[in-house]
């Protein structure tokens, strides 16, 4: 598994003025690596992550995941590519409010029908200490439980790449450590992790750290 980001740039155009969110950034993330991109709010971290995840096409440069540029695929094929290869975790959890924990974890099975997904979901929930919360809806969970549910959902389809956007942003230290530990475990098990954050504590968990400021990579 290899994520290759080469000279990608992204500019948002608006009447109030154009904003270059990402400017000529290149970085790689290999299998078994836990990489972090740190930077202040609004520096372009999230834009970089969305481009890396096949959700936002860069204006220039290229993204390669396992040698495949997702933006060469049509929308449906790209969606399937994401379902097969990428897991996402966001600061806001993005859990579906009317589904219980188990069904939220099972949501990616809508995109990719595989056998024994339910068993796998149950295993993930057990691994993340949520087996007693299986039938609770997100509103009944703590923030840590919500993020662990979101992480379990991200890992259901056994992705090769885990992209996390401020996953500890709404968590206390204890819960943040739990989530980061699970992400580390994922990398150890052969996955590649790209974390974008402004949280120094989260950065400490990463093996490789990139810093960006005003859309540009400032140090490696």
């Amino acid at each position: 598994m290899r994520l290759e980001i080469s000279n990608v740039s992204k500019t948002y155009y608006s009447s109030k003025g154009d904003v270059t969110a990402v400017d000529q950034i290149s970085l790689n993330v290999e299998a078994n690596q836990f990489a972090a991109v740190r930077g202040p709010s609004g520096c372009g971290k999230s834009t970089l992550l969305l481009m890396a995840g096949g959700l936002l096409a860069p204006d220039s440069g290229s993204i390669q995941i396992e040698g495949q540029n997702p933006y060469d695929l049509n929308a449906n094929a790209r969606a399937r590519f994401r379902a097969e290869n990428i897991g996402f975790v966001f600061q806001q959890f993005h859990l579906i409010p009317y589904l219980n924990v188990l069904d939220n974890v099972l949501a990616p099975s809508l995109a990719l029908k595989e056998e024994q997904t339910r068993e796998r979901a149950e295993q993930l929930l057990k691994k993340f200490g949520l087996e007693h919360r299986v039938h609770h809806v997100p509103a009944q969970l703590s923030s840590g439980e919500r993020q662990r549910t979101a992480l379990a959902r991200a890992l259901l389809n056994e992705p090769k790449l885990l992209l996390a956007d401020e996953p500890t942003g709404n968590l206390d230290r204890e819960n943040a450590d739990v989530v980061l530990a699970h992400m580390k475990d994922f990398a150890t098990a052969g996955g590649a992790v790209l974390l974008v954050t402004h949280d120094e504590h989260a950065v400490e968990a990463a093996e490789i750290v990139h810093s960006i400021d005003a859309g540009r990579l400032v140090s490696v």
């Binding site: 995840g53 959700l55 449906n76 969606a79 399937r80 590519f81 994401r82 379902a83 097969e84 897991g87 996402f88 966001f90 993005h94 579906i96 949501a107 990616p108 809508l110 995109a111 990719l112 959902r153 991200a154 389809n157």
Partner: peptide
């Protein structure tokens, strides 16, 4: 989120 995780 559904679109992000690959739902068509």
């Amino acid at each position: 989120i559904l679109r992000a995780i690959g739902v068509q």
